[in-house]
Computed example of a mutant assay.
Amino acid sequence: MKTLIIFLFVVATTTFSQAQEVTRLGEVKVGFAPINTEIIKTPNGFTFVIDKVRSIEFTSNPIGFMYDNFDIENFIAALDNDRYSNYEVSLECSRGSMVAFFDTKGNLMSTHQNFKDVLLPLAQRREVYKNYKGWTMTKNKYRAKTKGKVITDETFKITLQKGDRKQRIKIAGNNQGISLASN
């Protein structure tokens, strides 16, 4: 019995002493695009293709999505040997795209956004519903331009249908009202 207790004590001591070993981990690099994207180099810049799962998040707030999921400083550092005068970065998904222009320091200069079949903001939805009762929105297109992060031009082009009749309307995003598009 005495030898069994000594044997168990030696096994326990050996096990606990081995558990205290320090493991050093290798260096981890954080890239400029933490989301799982496909990166394509084009003659004018780089294109990041966003998967379908993240496309709804991207279309609801493209600039916020870009800042949350794309690090322009690391991107510029990775291209340090090329020394571009400015950077054109395209983010694309199945519903549309945004092209962002950055200066050499990584400051956002402007963006161009084009999307289709997006959820209209609440004010525009209410305006369309109030003025076109009984009509169904069959498709829409959203276009916007920004200077930095501020939207300077925003429009929604909407196709409505009621029975066999179709009508196209255009809504300015800054609440200037609805105008009929000429066919």
Score class of each variant (00 low, 15 high):
Met1Ile: 10
Thr3His: 13
Leu4Gly: 12
Ile6Trp: 04
Leu8Glu: 00
Leu8Ser: 09
Val11Cys: 13
Phe16Arg: 06
Ser17Gly: 06
Gln18Ala: 14
Ala19Leu: 14
Gln20Phe: 14
Val22Asn: 08
Val22Thr: 11
Thr23Glu: 11
Thr23Pro: 00
Arg24Asn: 10
Leu25Trp: 08
Leu25Met: 14
Glu27His: 14
Phe32Arg: 04
Ile35Trp: 01
Asn36His: 12
Thr37Asp: 03
Thr37Ile: 14
Glu38Thr: 15
Ile39Gln: 08
Asn44His: 11
Phe48His: 05
Asp51Phe: 02
Asp51Met: 05
Lys52Gly: 07
Ile56Arg: 12
Glu57Gly: 06
Pro62Val: 01
Ile63Gln: 04
Ile63Trp: 00
Phe65Gly: 00
Phe70Lys: 05
Phe70Val: 05
Ile76Tyr: 03
Ala77Gln: 13
Leu79Met: 05
Asp80Glu: 10
Tyr84Ala: 13
Asn86Phe: 08
Asn86Gln: 07
Glu88Cys: 03
Val89Asn: 04
Ser90Met: 07
Glu92Pro: 02
Glu92Tyr: 02
Ser94Trp: 03
Arg95Trp: 08
Phe101Ile: 15
Phe102Leu: 01
Asp103Ser: 06
Thr104Asp: 13
Lys105Leu: 08
Leu108His: 05
Ser110Cys: 07
Thr111Lys: 03
Thr111His: 04
His112Gly: 12
Gln113Leu: 15
Gln113Asn: 12
Asn114Gln: 15
Leu119Phe: 10
Leu119Gly: 06
Leu122Arg: 10
Gln124Asp: 12
Arg125Ala: 12
Arg126Met: 13
Val128Thr: 09
Tyr129Trp: 09
Asn131Pro: 01
Lys133Tyr: 06
Lys133Trp: 06
Lys133Thr: 07
Gly134Tyr: 05
Trp135Leu: 01
Met137Val: 13
Lys139Ser: 10
Lys141Ala: 09
Lys141Leu: 05
Arg143Asn: 14
Arg143Phe: 15
Arg143Met: 15
Ala144Cys: 04
Lys145Arg: 11
Lys147His: 07
Lys149Ser: 11
Lys149Ile: 14
Val150Ser: 10
Glu154Ala: 06
Asp164Tyr: 06
Lys166Ala: 04
Ile171Ala: 01
Asn174Ala: 10
Gly177Val: 04
Gly177Ala: 06
Ile178Tyr: 01
Ile178His: 05
Ser179Trp: 02
Leu180Gly: 05
Ser182His: 04
Ser182Pro: 00
Asn183Glu: 09
Asn183Gln: 08
Asn183Gly: 04
